[in-house]
Design a binder for these strands. Structure first.
Length: 269
DNA sequence: AAAATGTTCAACCGCTTGTGG
DNA sequence: TCCACAAGCGGTTGAACATTT
């Protein structure tokens, strides 16, 4: 057999032997070690050079989604949830683009969050995740509720800070809140949103988070005109659905939900 | 206690896009 | 302009784990 024959046979053999499935500790170590010395990129040749019987794709995915030092693990925070909902309302399933605004989170993680949490809620409400009703509910109920919870957390932290520190430190503690937390303070509770944020065109423009580091809004009306001429189609859910939403998912009480329905259907035109 | 059912998320797949020759 | 290859992206799968019956 000539040299070329040997080479092609070797390549075919290696391709047949490519491992799949969960990575072992040894494989992780080999990948980390190789990238530490040679950098990332050229994943197919990297996989061979590192002695890994994995495809380049598999190595790239393992590194980006799991082994990279700046990957953030653990539960998605309230702030991150709010940001995901906000950005998804603008960009849809552009997971990679959304992930760019959540430091340390991967597109895969955000995609999983959306599918397991958000889509589940839509399913249980017998509501399409892409429907106007569901998007409006995220906007009017879920996101304001998240903001309220974030604010409550911040208040609790501030109270704790006041308890344990002398007064001269409390102002410093207050001003040390992150920009993201500050921007959430611009949100209004759900009911107030409906009452106070109707502009001259009779369109509703919820005040978005203004954190310039995270979200760069192009301006009023840029994707946030959730109330439009089809408003009559909104809020057609049964009271069961309202109660389910209120009690199980968004912690919005049913009275508030009914009030919102009333506002949508009668007052806000 | 065990089986059934539900949930999570790492990993894979196929397609698209970018890039260099 | 075309082609080949690498990288990126979003959809999907399935194993492991958790919860319910």
């Amino acid at each position: 057999m000539d040299q070329h024959g040997e080479v092609s046979n070797r390549i075919i053999s290696e391709e047949e032997e490519l491992r799949r499935g969960p990575w072992t500790v040894e494989e992780d170590f080999a990948l980390i070690n190789y990238i530490a010395h040679h950098g990332e990129g050229r994943w197919n040749s990297l996989a061979r050079s590192a002695g890994l019987k994995r495809s380049g794709k598999s190595c790239r995915l393992r590194w980006l989604n799991y082994l990279r030092p700046d990957v953030r693990r653990g539960n998605i925070t309230l702030e991150e949830q709010l940001l995901i909902l906000e950005l998804h309302s603008r960009w849809g399933n552009r997971w990679s683009k959304i992930a760019q605004h959540l430091p340390g989170r991967t597109d895969n993680e955000i995609k999983n969050y959306w599918r397991t949490r958000v889509q589940k809620h839509a399913k249980q409400l017998k509501c399409d995740v892409n429907s106007k009703q569901f998007k409006d509910t995220m906007r009017y109920l879920w996101m304001p509720r998240l903001v309220e919870r974030i604010q409550a957390q911040a208040n609790a932290a501030a109270a704790a800070s006041t308890t344990f520190h002398p007064p001269e430190n409390s102002s410093a503690a207050a001003s040390s809140d992150s920009d993201l937390t500050d921007c959430y303070n611009n949100y209004q509770p759900a009911v107030e949103l409906v009452n106070n944020n109707i502009n001259q065109d009779n369109y509703y423009y919820p005040p978005p988070p203004t954190d310039h580091q995270m979200i760069n809004y192009a301006g009023a009306g840029d994707g946030f005109d959730f109330i439009d001429d089809d408003r009559n189609d909104q809020c057609q859910w049964s009271m069961d659905a309202a109660a389910t939403a209120a009690d199980n998912f968004w912690n919005i009480n049913v009275d508030d939900f009914c009030f919102l329905q009333h506002q949508f259907n009668n007052d806000v035109v």
